[in-house]
Design a protein around this nucleic acid. Structure first.
Length: 223
DNA sequence: GCATGATCATTA
DNA sequence: TAATGATCATGC
């Protein structure tokens, strides 16, 4: 089946997502004639790409939100049967150089998740991939208290990068946002600076929303 | 290597 | 057993 056209409005996107809620992944893959792996050990991003296809996302691998014209990012969120997030949520790679002039308001991070369509997936590891179920989607905007919480962590982490202490950053830094390795494997290195401003090599890092944050979003969306 | 999509699996 | 650090696929 050919790729559905991009939705023309936020409302239409939400309706499309609501229309697939309750289906399991085998039904969805069959309906769109897409091959489905046995598990996610290799194709870890398969579920996200399946939902992108079904809803008509058009950004490909461009560094912009999935639905280009609507400026809406799609995130699948694995949850347990009681609605608790099972994994952190990757947002984007963290810049380790060229940070001069980068502030919260013009950051790649903020731009990426200004507006997100969250699609929970009932995805406990014991449930075979085929039987995992699409949950009730909800639209979310980065604003108010949510924005303040992330801004705080983002600025703390960026300060550490700027000060040259990127080697001191672990996943424990930050309350709702954390920095973790993001690469094909641990031998991949990228440019960074040390405490003295000398160039060094560092593992690429990515910003991840901690479960505490997405747990809060779920709680508020379904309260 | 970097950007997209994330989850796996070892460790604490 | 949760969380951190590591890893997998794909396109360019």
């Amino acid at each position: 089946m050919h790729r559905p056209a991009p939705p023309q409005s936020k409302q239409q996107l939400l309706e499309r997502a609501q229309a697939i809620a309750g289906l399991n992944l085998a039904e969805l893959a069959t309906r769109f004639k897409l091959p489905m792996p046995q598990n996610l050990k290799r194709e870890k991003g398969w579920v996200g790409q399946l939902i992108e296809f079904v809803l008509g996302a058009d950004a490909g691998s461009k560094p912009v939100p999935d639905f280009i014209d609507l400026n809406i990012e799609l995130k699948t969120l694995p949850i347990s049967h009681i609605g608790e997030p099972l994994e952190t949520t990757f947002v984007c790679v963290a810049p380790l150089t060229g940070i001069t002039g980068v502030h919260w308001h013009n950051s790649h991070f903020r731009n990426k998740i200004r507006q997100v369509l969250w699609v929970p997936i009932l995805a406990e590891r014991q449930i075979p991939l085929a039987e995992r179920v699409v949950g009730t989607p909800f639209m979310w905007q980065l604003e108010g208290e949510h924005e303040q919480l992330l801004k705080q962590d983002w600025e703390e982490l960026m300060d550490l990068i700027v000060l040259g202490d990127v080697t001191a950053i672990t996943a424990k830094t930050g309350q709702y946002l954390q920095l973790r390795p993001k690469a094909a494997h641990s031998r991949i290195m990228t440019e960074a600076f040390d405490l003295h401003g000398n160039p060094i090599k560092s593992q690429p890092k990515g910003f991840y929303l901690k479960k505490e944050f997405t747990r809060m979003l779920l709680a508020q969306a379904f309260s």
